[in-house]
C-alpha cells in the first residue's frame, strides 16, 4: 500500500471516530426515519424508510427488501432479506452513525449482498439519515 493511501485511510478513521457521539437520530425519532445513501461512483446505494430498528426499501445492489438493525452503541449490525435481480437474497453488514445535527445524522455502512444464484457483491455506503 502506498504512503498516501495509508494517510487517507488514517484521516478518514480519525474523522469518523472523533465525530461519533451520543444517541442516534434513528432511535430517537418518534415517527420514523429515512436513509438515503450513495455507493460505488456516488450512485444511489440505498433508500430506506423505517421506524427505530426496522427498515424497508432499496438496499445496495438493488435488493428490494426489509430488515432490521441491532444496535451496538453508535455502531450497528444490519440484516435484511428481499428480492434482487429476480432472485431471493440477503443483505448483512456493519454500520456507524455519527455527527448528529438537527434531525439528521450520517450513516456509514460496509455490507454485502448475496442471492441464491450468486449475485454477490460488497458495498461501502455513506448517507444521510433523517429522523422525526
Amino acid at each position: 500500500m502506498k504512503k498516501n493511501q495509508i494517510i487517507i485511510l488514517l484521516i478518514l478513521l480519525i474523522l469518523l471516530i472523533n465525530s461519533t457521539y451520543g444517541a442516534t437520530t434513528r432511535n430517537t425519532g418518534k415517527v420514523g426515519h429515512t436513509y438515503i445513501a450513495v455507493s460505488e461512483g456516488l450512485s444511489l446505494g440505498s433508500l430506506r424508510i423505517g421506524r427505530k430498528n426496522f427498515e424497508v426499501g432499496i438496499y445496495p445492489g438493488y435488493l428490494f427488501g426489509a430488515g432490521g438493525i441491532v444496535n451496538m452503541n453508535n455502531f450497528y449490525a444490519t440484516f435484511a432479506a428481499g428480492i434482487i435481480n429476480s432472485d431471493v437474497g440477503i443483505y448483512a453488514g456493519v454500520g456507524l452513525e455519527f455527527y448528529n445535527f438537527w434531525i439528521c445524522n450520517f450513516r456509514f455502512e460496509v455490507a454485502g449482498v448475496s442471492s441464491y444464484h450468486n449475485y454477490t457483491s460488497g458495498h461501502a455506503l455513506i448517507g444521510l439519515n433523517f429522523g422525526i
Partner: peptide
C-alpha cells in the same frame, strides 16, 4: 473491500471480495 487507487476509494469503489 480491497484498497486500490485512492481517488476510486474516495468514490466508494473498492475491489471487494464478498461471500455469503
Amino acid at each position: 473491500l480491497g484498497i486500490r487507487e485512492p481517488y476510486l476509494n474516495a468514490l466508494l469503489c473498492f475491489q471487494d471480495s464478498t461471500q455469503a
